[in-house]
């Protein structure tokens, strides 16, 4: 058994999940903030679009992204104009795809957690001289720790287990875009059942221990916030 064929995909899955989580906590917080605190034109349309990846088959999303990020697509073309390289079949490409795919898993918990914050403490922050931008970091963020934690867990684990979208736009390049779930799929197909077993077990154990740690932390968090 080749250890690289086991470790590389796991490492890429982990990197992908971590990068997607970082990007989505920022982007998700921004979107959730707009949806909770600002007037958003055509709100039902925007909210439905954000939730779409939950109900859409990953292959459909993957197909759209393949077109969008391809050399003829808007995103692919502007990326190529900016950086001179193609977006498809690269690590950056699968990060972007995962960001779209996991968007609702970041926005929904953050939205719920922002909406739970007492409006008056935000008003008080403005009264005390904080701009909306500063108030977001000094009041909204520290009072949404549980929401950020929930968003991070969901996005991280959802990305670790992502399959259909990456199958479409990743191209399974070893060492770059071949993530664990795809390596498992390929191992099963090429009858390398031992590799499939090892990879699946590591992935399952990693996800489980991650959840365990986060749940333990989260419990402490709730105790700390309780009045």
């Amino acid at each position: 058994m080749d250890t690289g064929s086991i470790l590389d995909p796991l490492w890429i899955s982990f990197k992908l999940a971590a990068a997607t989580t970082v990007v989505l906590l920022a982007a998700g917080a921004f979107l959730a903030y707009l949806l909770v605190y600002r007037k958003v034109p055509a709100r039902p349309v925007v909210e439905s679009l954000i939730s779409l990846p939950i109900v859409l088959p990953p292959t459909v999303l993957g197909f759209y992204l393949l077109i969008l990020m391809g050399p003829k697509g808007a995103l692919g073309r502007s990326w190529e104009g900016l950086f001179g390289s193609s977006l498809l079949f690269t690590f950056t490409g699968i990060v972007i795809a995962s960001v779209f795919h996991s968007l609702p898993f970041a926005v929904q918990p953050l939205k719920a957690s922002f909406a739970r914050i007492d409006r008056r403490i935000l008003e008080n922050a403005h009264v005390l001289g904080l701009s909306p931008f500063k108030a977001f970091f000094r009041v909204v963020v520290p009072n949404s720790v549980a929401g950020f934690a929930a968003a991070a867990i969901l996005v991280f684990l959802h990305t670790m287990g992502e399959f259909g979208v990456i199958l479409m736009v990743g191209g399974s390049v070893p060492g770059k875009t071949k993530v664990a779930s795809i390596a498992i799929f390929e191992a099963v197909e090429s009858l390398r059942y031992r590799d499939a077993w090892v990879l699946s077990l590591v992935l399952a154990l990693a996800s489980f221990s991650f959840l365990l740690v986060v749940n333990a932390l989260n419990k402490g968090e709730y105790d700390g916030l309780k009045g």
């Binding site: 403490i121 008003e123 922050a125 009264v127 001289g129 009072n143």
Partner: peptide
């Protein structure tokens, strides 16, 4: 003039203290 530039303070009914501080 937006609230944060008015240099005022307000004591809210039923308090509006920051629970994380």
């Amino acid at each position: 003039l937006p609230t944060q530039k008015r240099r005022l303070a307000m004591v809210f009914q039923d308090f509006a203290l920051f629970p994380h501080l």
